[in-house]
């Protein structure tokens, strides 16, 4: 359903800081795939997600979603098809607005917005039930400003917002990296729960190899802007962290498995 064809992206072209971030990348996702993406710093994981989301266009190559080319569609237009959760918990929500106002904004993703009142009574009921499912006690704080929530609560809320209108594709960009381990586990459980319940096609970037193996039905490893390892199904479920580390070592001659990946 998602097709990336021969994508190239270079940042700061023709300057000393020139960086080839994506180098002839091609990727094909099937409907219902839950793909985890791993790779070292600067491997191009976030760039790939940003290209899919339309934060910037690729230098060349094509992006197709359900057969429809979206390569040059502006970010706000393709948002209709995409749910996104960011690494920074501050990025996914509006801090000075209430929980229910944030949800109401997300509820209208992909719909025409007009001069109707921004939130209706029936919606509030719906939000309350959905927040109850999160089991974070947020259902009693619907009119609390999001800025007062913890990082984990904000990520859980962003996750809910990303899937309130069912997206064709869910993009998770290291969405648990800024959380403490316990909260990260909880948010990942929620992710799994929501993805399964809606059978969402998902692309999840992570720095944590254990999580990359534990979640999803397919794993891809990136290095220097391209995919160097792609494993799915049974083969993936048998993977061990040690196997991945070895794979890293072999392609990158040791520089790949940095401290952060080994320690997490």
């Amino acid at each position: 359903m998602l097709k990336l064809e021969n994508i190239y992206k270079t940042f700061n072209k023709n300057t000393v800081n020139e960086k080839l971030a994506i180098n002839g990348l091609s990727l094909h996702l099937k409907k219902g795939d839950f793909v985890t993406v791993i790779g070292g710093n600067g491997a191009g994981k976030s760039t790939m997600l940003n290209l899919i989301a339309g934060v910037y266009p690729p230098d060349s190559g094509k992006i197709l979603l359900d057969g429809e080319p979206i390569t040059n569609l502006p970010e706000y237009k393709r948002a209709k098809y995409l749910g996104r959760v960011f690494q920074d918990p501050m990025m996914g929500t509006a801090a000075n607005m209430e929980i229910q106002e944030n949800l109401a904004l997300a509820y209208r993703r992909g719909k025409r917005r007009g001069l109707k009142w921004g939130i209706t009574k029936e919606e509030k009921q719906l939000y309350m039930e959905m927040l109850k499912n999160l089991d974070l006690g947020l259902e009693s704080r619907m009119s609390t400003k999001v800025g007062l929530l913890s990082g984990g609560q904000r990520q859980a809320l962003t996750l809910l917002m990303a899937t309130l209108q069912q997206p064709k594709l869910l993009l998770l960009d290291e969405h648990t990296a800024a959380l403490d381990p316990k909260t990260a586990e909880r948010v990942l459980e929620l992710t799994q729960q929501i993805v399964t319940a809606n059978s969402l096609t998902t692309l999840m970037v992570t720095h944590n190899m254990k999580h990359a193996i534990q979640y999803g039905n397919r794993l891809i490893m990136m290095y220097e802007g391209n995919i160097i390892y792609d494993v799915s199904g049974e083969e993936k479920s048998k993977l061990k962290v040690a196997d991945l580390l070895q794979k890293f070592e072999s392609v990158s001659k040791g520089e790949f498995a940095n401290d952060r990946m080994i320690l997490s």
């Binding site: 706000y76 996104r84 509006a94 993703r109 001069l115 921004g118 990303a162």
Partner: peptide, 25 residues
């Protein structure tokens, strides 16, 4: 308080989020 007005308010808060929700900031 309207749908459009809420988007204007959110834009001052967090443009990235507003665009991710499909609004032209």
């Amino acid at each position: 308080g309207t749908e459009i007005g809420c988007c204007v308010r959110a834009t001052g808060n967090n443009e990235t989020m507003v665009r991710a929700q499909g609004v032209n900031t």
